[in-house]
Design a protein around this nucleic acid. Structure first.
Lengths: 339, 339
DNA sequence: TATAGTTAGTTTACCGGTTACATTATACTA
DNA sequence: TAGTATAATGTAACCGGTAAACTAACTATA
């Protein structure tokens, strides 16, 4: 690191006190116009860059927020980050991005580092391997402003921005039912994560509403990643012919992509042999050989709302805890059987 | 922000000096084993989180690197970030991510803030609107370690990690020539950015190598974004029938996607009426109606190499300046005319 | 047994700013 | 013209740690 110019150096060069320089640079009162001018010029000519580290130490404020993301390569998250960025850019906050690679341990390390760096708040989407909530509880109880997004942990004292997972999942399952399918499987996400539970819940509600009996063999816990969708689908395809599903709903699009891979490997065609639907509206969904019917999650909106809420919590400790739902849209393409 | 526990508080509670606590927590010498034990326990029970801000002020080191990205939604960049993340995770650096949205002004603000935050180094991919280099020059001359990636600025005193843009571009143009096309257009990127210049250079070299005369009307400056590819293609399509291109090479995949949109609007078919190739191997490239022939850029590798180099520069001021080239791969699909 | 060497711990100053208060110079008022 | 308000600037302490120098007590050595 180069030797950076300090206030003191400017002060010395000008024969004034550091305080006067500080005041001049921060547009405070009680600085002679001429002095101020001299200071500004000197600061520029010396290439002064204020030291936020020192400022933060005094003000106990870093204008930095941490973002904890489980999977950068899932297209949903970069879009969320774009939404967050848009808000933080306007409000002069910076973003420390951490990637947990779906590992709870990495997430813990990340959050601890963020706390050490004294970020003003943290936006979290939990990893699928999340094990116990006490770690989050502790973080939140320490007074650190936290807002969850997409993969939330509920009733833990922090706000959450998600989509209407349950109703969306019910809606898309309903759509499969409308096609006349009776044997509808579900490739679920981890039940410890709210989206996992909610989306499965929506699927069950839809079946129940139509008096379709729930078949436990048709519900397989997969996960958020393509590989897991692939494996879950194989399990379903290995069921005896008679109990094989006619249609499959999945926890998200990557999972559906994996499942589609498996279906192809078994030489079956979509949607004729098996219909399938996703949840995300990944950038690839519409481009598949058989375009994927799915739920469009407004990722950018989720990021934006999350960041807005977090900054409110940071700036006003009385900001209430909320569960904010961003509304999705059912995108009907062909994989469900529509033409 | 909650009231955080400090070293001093632990020291007081234990009746020792702050230094002793500091030593105990940092595994330094000259601390009695029993004392150390007592300190560690007290720190845990009081919920102590070390304050990196204070540490940084003394050490002049933040273990944080800044990343300046022009477009999060271009799938290339999240992959790069994943590569960077993988390295910083292992080396205990954190990532401040800034998004310039292809605007040079935002980029300047971002870099200044990163400097104020005293990041240990910065990874930069320049925005397409980059205007003058003096700003970068100043930043680098101030002693801030900088490594450019993908969109580099050369000969400015910083290392650069990119792909072999020129040879790749020559190779893919060559492939179009092999198909027998004579009138090959080029939708270029901004010439102020190295990739823009290099890729255009590769295209020109290929033509020259085959004695194909360069037709200025067939070279249109587009840009990195879909919309710009769309507009550039329209310009090409509006040329008189006789001078219309038989094939088009583009600066990147998004630009190609835009161009494809335009071609469709004109009722022409790919590759029969017009062949087209990209550069990126975007996640969507293989999924198009007519799958896109393109150059696969190893984004993850670029991020990894960039981060590795930056950390070397940070940790050893004598680390030499290098231009690191990561090698691409020509991905032949159908849009070029291959079947 | 006097001297030097360890060990465990303390004290002081400092990193680069800001806050709170003190001081000086200037202007205004009676 | 003394007396006071006001503007401009300075000083000291502090934010939460750490480096460096110092001290006290104990141990080893000749």
């Amino acid at each position: 690191m180069s030797s950076q110019v300090t206030l003191k150096q400017i002060a010395e060069a000008l024969g004034v006190s550091a305080m006067t320089v500080s005041r001049a640079l921060n547009n405070r009162d009680n600085v002679d116009a001429k002095t101020k001018q001299r200071v500004l010029e000197k600061a520029r000519s010396m290439g002064y860059t204020p030291n936020h580290i020192a400022k933060s130490l005094v003000s106990n404020k870093t204008y930095t927020i941490g973002v904890v993301i489980p999977a950068i390569s899932h297209a949903f998250f970069p879009e969320v980050v774009r939404g967050i960025e848009e808000v933080t850019y306007k409000t002069n906050y910076q973003l420390i991005l951490t990637h947990a690679a779906e590992q709870f341990e990495r997430e813990k390390v990340a959050i601890n580092t963020l706390r050490s760096k004294r970020v003003d708040g943290i936006l979290i989407s939990t990893s699928q391997t999340v094990e116990d909530y006490s770690f989050y509880k502790q973080t939140i109880d320490s007074g650190m402003p936290v807002v969850f997004f997409d993969r939330c942990i509920e009733n833990i004292g922090a706000s959450c921005v998600s989509v209407n997972d349950r109703t969306s999942s019910r809606q898309i399952t309903q759509h499969l039912i409308d096609h006349g399918y009776k044997k509808i499987a579900y490739i679920s996400g981890p039940q410890k994560v709210a989206v996992g539970k909610e989306r499965l819940g929506g699927y069950l509600e839809a079946l129940e509403a139509h008096d379709i009996p729930v078949d436990d063999k048709l519900i397989v816990e997969g996960g958020f990643r393509e590989q897991q969708g692939y494996e879950a689908m194989k399990q379903l395809l290995d069921l005896p012919e008679s109990s094989r599903p006619q249609a499959v709903a999945t926890i998200n699009d990557p999972s559906a992509f994996g499942a589609i891979e498996a279906i192809k490997e078994y030489g079956l065609s979509i949607p004729d042999d098996i219909a399938i639907v996703g949840f995300t509206d990944d950038i690839r969904a519409g481009l598949l050989e058989c375009p994927l019917t799915t739920i469009r999650q407004p990722a950018y909106e989720v990021g934006k709302k999350g960041a807005e809420k977090l900054i409110k919590v940071i700036e006003d400790p009385d900001e209430p805890i909320e569960n904010i739902e961003v509304v999705t849209k059912l995108i009907i393409r062909n994989s469900c059987g529509c033409t």
